[in-house]
Structures are given as C-alpha cells and as structure tokens.
Amino acid sequence: MSERKSSPLGHADLWEKWKENGDLEAKKELIEKYLNIVDYVSGRLAVGLPRNISKDDLFSNGVMGLMDAIEKFDYKRGLQFETYASWRVRGAILDGLRQGDWVPRSVREKAKRIEEGYQKLEQKYLRTVTDEEMSEYLEISEKEFQQMLQDVAVMTLCSLEDPIREEESETRMSMLIDDKAKNPDHKVREFFLQESLTKGIEKLTEKERTVVSLLYYEDLSLSEIAEVMSLSPSRISQLHSKAILRLRATLEKSRNLLMQED
C-alpha cells in the first residue's frame, strides 16, 4: 500500500475545514482524495471470491466505510488515516457480504466440520494434526479434503471478522486491536482469548504461519503470496483455509473454557 500513502497532515486544511467548520465541500474533497483506498481494499478482497459477487457492490460498500471513517477520524492525533480507513472500508465490505448471505449453506457446513475436526483431534493429540489424520476423521480421501479446503476458501476470507458466536458482536480480529479501554473483567477475558490466538498461531505449520503473516500483517493479496512462496494460488487458498479453521477451533475451545468458568 506504499504507493498510496499520504499523511493526513498533507490535507490538514481540508481536515480542518471539515472537522472544525463542517465544510461539506471539504468532506467531498477528502472522499475523492481517499477513494483509492476503497479501490485497493475492494480489489484485494475480490481475489478468491465467487465470480457472482459484484465488484461494484464491493466498491459501493467500501465507499460507505470510507465516509464513516472520514466522519469519525480525529485528525488532531496525527495518526495515519489510511490505516484507520482501510479497516473501516474492509469492515464495511465484509458487512455487506455477510448481509447478502453469499456463502451457501453447504460451504458453511463443510467449514464447520473441518473446524470441529481440528478442535477434537488437536485436543486429543495435543499437537498439530496432519491432513491424513483429518481425512481419516472426516472419512474422505486426502484429495477430497484438499477440495473441501478449496471450497471453503471464500468463507475463511471473512473468518477473523465474523462474530465468535453468532449472537455476539465480538470478533476474532477485534482481539488483535486495542481500540478502547474496557472494564477489567472484559480485559481479562480478552487477554485470555488473545493469548489463545497467539498460541494457536504458534501451532500452525510454517507455511500456514507465513500465509497468515503475509496476508494480515504484510497486507499482501493471495496472488502476491503465491508468487512470494512459489506456490499456486489454489494451494495458498488451501493453506489459508487450514490456518483460519485451526485458529477458529482454538478460539472456540478457549471460549468454551471461559463460559464454563462463569
């Protein structure tokens, strides 16, 4: 994203006109100047999504996220607006996808089966389980297991943004971001889950950790990661699916332990 970085201080006059004076023309100019963030984020998320997902819809939802970011951003703190806006834009696009119920029930069921398999087997063996062991648990061939991972790839794109439980708003990704102070009890729970997530990442295979790191921390797309690791895009999708489903299983186990202590 280096090609599009421009500090909010570079548009200080616009931010001041909008935030201090409510100048709508200044707000409109800010939206136009930062539309490339929407283009970049929507383009990255489009990789790996089904072809029936409209890129125009992704972009439109992203624009709503950008407008929300401009509304809420505090330019006086001297923070990088692009980083803040990127999260807002990404969140708005993923919200739009979820509301559209774009993941078929069959795909959700496959993801749930794999997640449960990782949770049970890794609890049983106390180590990272192999594809062979997972295939045996699911009573399918390794080739069929790889196809399952490919099938759920589009779902795992949003997995860290999904609620830990369907009836709650707390997301897995929120545990990686300290955005506001919370009450002590919540902080203890959050720390426990965050620690569980960290341990879960440590248990991933080297390739899975690399994919997670490049995607979520280095901000590379799946196709770019494929080039870096000299693997096919489909193989990267499979590694990503396995990593996310392992992490989901780890967090769900930790969540259940917390619920038992209540």
Rank of each mutant, 00 (worst) to 15 (best):
A26Y: 04
E122I: 02
T128G: 09
R255A: 10
E16M: 05
L24A: 04
L231M: 13
R77I: 09
I37C: 09
E166Q: 07
Y137Q: 11
R88D: 09
E109I: 08
I37M: 09
E16K: 12
L35Y: 10
L58T: 00
W18K: 05
P233K: 12
V152E: 09
V154R: 10
Q238D: 02
E224F: 04
L222Y: 04
D56W: 05
E224Y: 11
C158Y: 14
L45I: 04
P104Q: 04
L35H: 12
Q238V: 14
C158I: 06
R98A: 09
D151S: 10
T198C: 08
D262R: 00
E20L: 08
D219C: 11
Q260C: 05
V152D: 04
T128Y: 06
N52P: 12
D13T: 08
L245T: 01
W87M: 10
L176A: 12
M1L: 08
L176Y: 07
G10A: 06
S237F: 03
P233E: 05
F59K: 01
R44H: 10
V152A: 11
L58E: 02
R44M: 14
S241L: 02
S169K: 05
E202G: 05
Y40I: 03
Y34T: 08
D56S: 09
D179S: 13
M64C: 12
Y137V: 00
I244C: 04
F81H: 05
I70R: 00
L214W: 11
S54H: 13
S159Q: 06
S213L: 10
L121S: 12
Q99I: 01
L197V: 08
S196E: 06
N256W: 08
L258D: 11
L66K: 02
A226D: 02
I244Q: 01
R209N: 15
D101N: 08
R255I: 03
S232E: 15
R127I: 06
Y217T: 15
M175S: 09
E32S: 01
M64G: 15
Y84Q: 07
E136G: 03
V41G: 07
E261K: 03
D151P: 07
S169I: 03
G10I: 06
S141N: 00
L45T: 03
L35I: 14
V107R: 01
D185K: 08
K110I: 05
R246E: 11
D101K: 03
M155N: 04
E20V: 08
D39H: 05
A69S: 14
